[in-house]
Each structure stands twice: as structure tokens, then as C-alpha cells.
């Protein structure tokens, strides 16, 4: 699936999107896999309270299931307006 990063999450990880091979069942499982990769991922995902997630471009919870998801995005709380 495609994993996208925005704002400081993108800067901390160092790329805007990547394709990830995963068997993660939930968003939390995917976060655990990413954290285990490298320090920059662990740093970006250190505090999930400071992050939001969208599955296929809709806001979701971290315990949401990923079955059938094509795109998962991680970003800080939004600041539009």
C-alpha cells in the first residue's frame, strides 16, 4: 500500500510517500512496523497523540483495520483557515 507523510512528519521521515509491503492488520500494527525500521521513523511516531491518520483519504483511528486500504496518510493536526 502507499504510505504518505505530510508537514513535519514528512520532514522527519525525509520523504513524502513510499510503497510499503505489509501484513499489518490495523494502523497501530503498521506504525509498529515503521517504528522498528529506523530511528527517523521511531522519532516521527514517538507520540501518536500528536498525529492523525487517514485511510484512503478519510480520517480514521489508530485502531482502525487496514483491510483493503490502498493509501494510508500520517500527519499532524490540521491547521486550515
Amino acid at each position: 500500500m502507499d504510505v504518505l507523510y505530510f508537514a513535519w512528519v514528512r520532514e522527519r521521515i525525509g520523504l513524502p510517500r513510499e510503497t510499503v509491503e505489509t501484513s499489518a492488520v490495523t494502523v497501530n500494527d503498521l506504525v509498529d512496523e515503521l517504528r522498528a525500521r529506523e530511528e527517523r521513523y521511531a522519532a516521527a511516531f514517538a507520540d501518536l497523540g500528536a498525529l492523525r491518520v487517514a485511510i484512503d483519504q478519510e480520517l480514521a483511528d489508530f485502531d482502525a483495520r487496514l483491510a483493503g486500504a490502498r493509501e494510508v496518510a500520517f500527519f499532524p493536526p490540521m491547521t486550515g483557515g
Binding site: 500527519f75 493536526p77 490540521m78 491547521t79 486550515g80 483557515g81
Partner: peptide, 10 residues
């Protein structure tokens, strides 16, 4: 749109 539209300001 302040907190539910995916925009980020720097």
C-alpha cells in the same frame, strides 16, 4: 475547515 480539512501552515 480549520481542523478537519488537511492543510498545514508553516
Amino acid at each position: 475547515l480549520k481542523s478537519r480539512a488537511p492543510f498545514w501552515k508553516k
